[in-house]
């Protein structure tokens, strides 16, 4: 791999890996929590938190808010501003589409 690699490729790749990590963690948490609290349970033990079944609250609603916060942090810390390249001088001319 040459040192010449564009910074967008590098930061992009790193950010992509971080995002995949977040996705894996979210999936693991959400599915295991929901499964533990929400499957194979007798209905008599139904516990509601703010009207949500307990498993929905801890397995979906709370992670949703947490992931919202993580998204903001991720945006603020990682999505580096970078130059994406000029808008083409006009490929239009090259293809004869000018005007």
């Amino acid at each position: 791999m040459s040192d010449n690699t564009d910074p967008v490729v590098r930061t992009g790749r790193r950010e992509a890996l971080i995002v995949v990590g977040i996705w894996l963690m979210a999936a693991a948490w959400s599915v295991t929590t929901s499964y533990r609290l929400g499957y194979n349970r007798p209905v008599e033990e139904l516990k509601l938190i703010w009207g949500f079944p307990e498993w929905t609250f801890w397995g979906v609603a709370v992670p949703w808010v947490v992931c919202g916060v993580i998204s903001w942090i991720f945006g603020a810390l990682f999505v580096h501003d970078s130059h994406l390249g000029e808008e083409l001088p006009e490929e239009a001319d090259e293809l004869g589409l000018g005007g």
Binding site: E15, A16, V19, I22, W23, A26, S30, P63, F78
Partner: peptide, 10 residues
């Protein structure tokens, strides 16, 4: 829950 970051971050 993660679509906002996966959709744009990957």
């Amino acid at each position: 829950i993660v679509v906002p970051i996966t959709g744009f971050g990957i």
